[in-house]
Amino acid sequence: MLRISLRVILAGGVSLVACASADANTDSASRALVPHRAIYDLKLKDASERSGIEGMVGRMVYEFTGSPCTGFSTNFRLVTKINTGEETRLSDQQTTTFEDMAARQFHFETKSFTDEQLDKQISGEASVAENGVKVEITQPDGREVDLPASVFPTGHMLDVIQNAKDGKNFFEARVFDGSEDGDQALLTTTVIGKQQEPEKGDVDADKAGEFSRAPFWPVTIAYFNETAQGDPTPVYNMSFKLYENGVTRDLTMEYGDFVLSGSLTRLELLKQQDPCPAPAK
């Protein structure tokens, strides 16, 4: 699961998966997450006149490796071509993250290119502190930010999976993922549907390889700015089909003025480099 910020699509900025909490249930669930490389084709599903977008296509490559005892790493690249009717712009986003579960630390680094020119670079470290999350941003400027208690993305992913297993269809959380300028967390609301079986003729499911017939949960996550007043509207909605092992497919990303769809075109399972020892009975 990953969140793609509006800045990524229109110029640069991003988020990603790479962290997990440390209680026993979460540790057991995180062992079920499979290392994998997934490729998604993106296309414009809908756009208002106000968006100024006439066409958009792209490709997203997401690689997830590691284990709860060695930490989780991700490598992510998103390339989009945007047609405004007056010009075509190429955006290239490259992000790496690493989560040290034992230390409860999260490293993030993002490079954003527009028309092959580097226009932004963000890197930093986040760690769980006594009263929240402390973020140390190393690029583009050295500064520290204190945020309220938040979970990191894979920790949030595991919470989604656990809630789905428990039959809970709604919960809220504050998530820090290093996106935008790396200095804010977002409030989220997650809605989980009942577990389903793939329908016949589901092309996106067929791309999931050995999981093509596995059951999944339909999930929708809405992200809100912390500072929003009154009855805020989400800055971003993401819907997808989620497997128990953390693989996602059939993405829909809503940014208000436009909507993108993402279809899984290839899923490759990767070898676990350093599996954790089995938990003691």
Rank of each mutant, 00 (worst) to 15 (best):
L2C: 03
I9S: 05
G12E: 08
G12K: 08
V14W: 11
C19V: 07
S21W: 14
A24C: 04
A24Y: 05
T26Y: 05
D27W: 07
L33A: 00
P35R: 03
D41L: 01
D46Y: 09
M56P: 02
R59T: 13
M60A: 11
F64A: 06
F64I: 06
F64R: 12
T70E: 10
S73R: 14
F76T: 12
K81M: 05
I82P: 05
E86A: 08
D92L: 04
Q94P: 02
T95N: 02
T97L: 12
T97E: 11
F98G: 01
T110F: 12
F113K: 11
T114C: 12
T114Q: 15
L118S: 08
D119G: 14
D119C: 05
K120G: 10
K120I: 00
Q121D: 07
Q121I: 06
G124I: 08
E125M: 12
A129R: 03
N131H: 12
V133A: 04
V135E: 03
V135R: 03
P140V: 06
D141N: 05
G142T: 04
F152K: 01
G155K: 02
I161T: 02
A164T: 07
K165D: 04
G167K: 08
K168N: 15
F171Q: 00
F171R: 00
D177M: 06
D177A: 13
S179A: 13
G182C: 07
D183W: 05
L187M: 15
L187Y: 11
T188Q: 10
I192D: 03
D204T: 10
G209T: 08
F211M: 10
A214Y: 08
W217Y: 15
A222N: 13
Q229L: 13
Y236Q: 13
V247C: 04
M253G: 03
E254F: 11
E254K: 02
G256C: 06
D257N: 14
S263Q: 10
L264Y: 06
R266M: 06
E268A: 10
